[in-house]
Write a protein that binds this DNA or RNA. Sequence first.
DNA 1: GGGCGGGCGGGAG
DNA 2: ACTCCCGCCCGCC
Length: 254
Amino acid sequence: MSTEKALIEALSALVTGPPRPVIDVVFSSWIRVDGPVGELYVAFGEKGVNFIRAADAVEHDAITFEETFRVALGKPLRHAEHPPAGLMPALHGRSASTVPVDLGHLTDFERDVLTATRRIPSGQVRPYGWVAREIGRPKAVRAVGTALGNNPVPVLIPCHRVVRSDGQLGEYVFGRAMKEDLLRAEKTNVDEVADLAKRKVFYLGSDTTHIVCYPSCAHARRITGPHRKGFRTIDAALTAGYRPCKHCRPAEVA
DNA sequence: GGGCGGGCGGGAG
DNA sequence: ACTCCCGCCCGCC
């Protein structure tokens, strides 16, 4: 296509296309909303939600939120009257969200990490190593932690559901306390997971199905008492003839 | 059971 | 381009 033709089409689009105020392109919008635990500042542009901070976290009023946003994204913010469509159900619902999220300024690795993290169901947790394995970089465990620490949209992309392999909850952008609060708010069995970890049990299997899960997996939680077998390592479970659950994927399916 | 080094991506020189 | 350093980690000793 000639340059002239492209130019003409672009210009006609400006005249005949739907109005798209320059202000919406240059600015992102912000709004303060109720989150599952406390209030949140949420920023969003045309491509989706692009930045979230906890309102009750240290020194976060609207002014500092705008400032941290400008430093992170290099754009100014203006206040919005309404949250973007789908945001509130995504923040509060238990089903997987479909709110558009703008991860445009991240690296491929960081996007992969966040995309895999987004697939962890509400009410469940996975180790950092699980995320690494899911994105095909099984040894990049610590780098996964770094990437999650850089999650621009916490809560919405649930990096609080990624925990340490030893049963501890691990670090969190808004502090460990909020990580635990968020998990409890979505009914994760944090106490049971901790109790099991204390006994060095990190996997649960059923001796009737011979399927092994992470302890927070919805399937593991339905194994009735006498059939519940605990394992310290996934290898121990596989050696005992169990196969990894297809939902929580505690190991690659052989 | 904690300490230590391996491992990896990203950003700052 | 290369090196160095840091970070929501992991598993062995």
